[in-house]
């Protein structure tokens, strides 16, 4: 792990409390979150809907202030224009100016991001070509589909060629082809030395492209690290299928396993260890008429990890 003196994004013990409604009910959106994103990595910020992902991103974009703790982007406070000049941001379900054309809007994005006038037109055309939006370049955006808006969103984030790209649920609402396109764009950004920070509740996105992930549930960071460190290669469980099971043998076998599922004369048993598999094998040899027809080891997936944490945190949200 190459450690650089200054992380691109640095969040320390960050908390955010909202006051909502007439009675000013306290809503704790984030609690004691710490993380660092290093240069050149794809960092996946993973959590179920309502976990606080967007709140953290809004704090990093200087849209909202934390209640306590600090957030820094390129070593500066998020509201600092010098920090913002080096990043591109795609908000969740982006919405743009209905009456502007794609080209006008990207021109505005380039201008606001400080792209030189002489370069702006070229950059805009380049983005339109990259995202296959050339045909719609001079059409007002009010007629754009979800996928086109999402592509405009990434185009405006990338038009100034930023060092850090922050994407809030970039794959949300996209079809499988669109998702693939976005994954390719993200991986390409990393290959060009950019840093990507993106949030998602979709596990497969993260498993496929992220270098490191942070998992947030109910406003708390439950894990930050490299995917392969979080998902150790250990076997989590083993599924053993036994055929020819009758009511009596089923009871004996179920005593060994954590979980069982009967289907016809087959019994699917879930066990934790190889010793338990040996015991099932032994039982099958002792009791006549049954035999083990399948043994499938299950390694821990991100989904298991995620679900385990969600279950643990279940009901604790306030």
């Amino acid at each position: 792990m190459s450690s650089l003196p200054e992380p691109v994004v640095s969040v320390t013990r960050l908390s955010k409390v909202y006051h909502s409604g007439f009675r000013m009910k306290r809503i704790r959106a984030l609690e004691d979150i710490s993380l660092e994103v290093e240069k050149g990595e794809i960092f996946g910020f993973l959590g179920p809907n309502g976990a606080g992902k967007t709140t953290l991103i809004k704090i990093l974009m200087g849209l909202t202030e934390p209640t306590s703790g600090t957030a820094q982007v390129f070593g500066r406070p998020p509201r600092d224009a010098k920090a913002k000049a080096r990043l591109g941001f795609l908000p969740e379900s982006p919405y743009f100016y209905d009456h502007l054309t794609a080209r006008e809007f990207l021109g505005l994005a380039a201008k606001l991001s400080g792209v030189q006038k002489s370069e702006a037109a070229g950059r805009v055309t380049g983005q339109l070509r990259l995202l296959r939006m050339e045909n719609a370049a001079d059409v007002q955006m009010r007629g754009f589909s979800r996928g086109m808006l999402q592509r405009m969103g990434i185009a405006q984030a990338l038009v100034a060629d930023p060092e850090l790209v922050v994407l809030d649920e970039p794959m949300g609402g996209l079809d499988p082809i669109g998702r693939k396109e976005f994954r390719d764009i993200i991986v390409d950004l990393r290959d060009r030395g950019k840093t990507v920070f993106f949030s998602t509740h979709i596990l497969s996105d993260v498993e496929m492209i992220c270098d490191r992930v942070g998992i947030v549930i109910a406003g708390r960071m439950v894990e930050v690290g490299r995917l392969r460190e979080i998902l150790t290669g250990d076997v989590e469980s083993i599924e053993v299928t036994v055929r020819g099971v009758t009511g009596k043998t089923q009871k004996i076998l179920e005593r060994v396993s954590q979980h069982s599922l009967k289907s016809g004369d087959e019994l699917l048993l879930t066990v934790r260890s190889e010793e338990e598999v040996d015991r099932i094998m032994a039982i099958s040899r002792e009791v006549g008429g049954i035999r083990v027809v399948g043994i499938v080891p299950h390694r821990r997936t991100l989904e298991d990890f995620f679900m385990a944490h969600v279950a643990k945190a279940g009901g604790t949200r306030d």
């Binding site: 913002k84 982006p94 919405y95 606001l112």
Partner: peptide, 14 residues
């Protein structure tokens, strides 16, 4: 309301 402000204020705009 339309959240275009997110895009505007995330740019180096004061």
């Amino acid at each position: 309301e339309k959240r275009t402000i997110y895009i505007m204020l995330a740019k180096p705009v004061r």
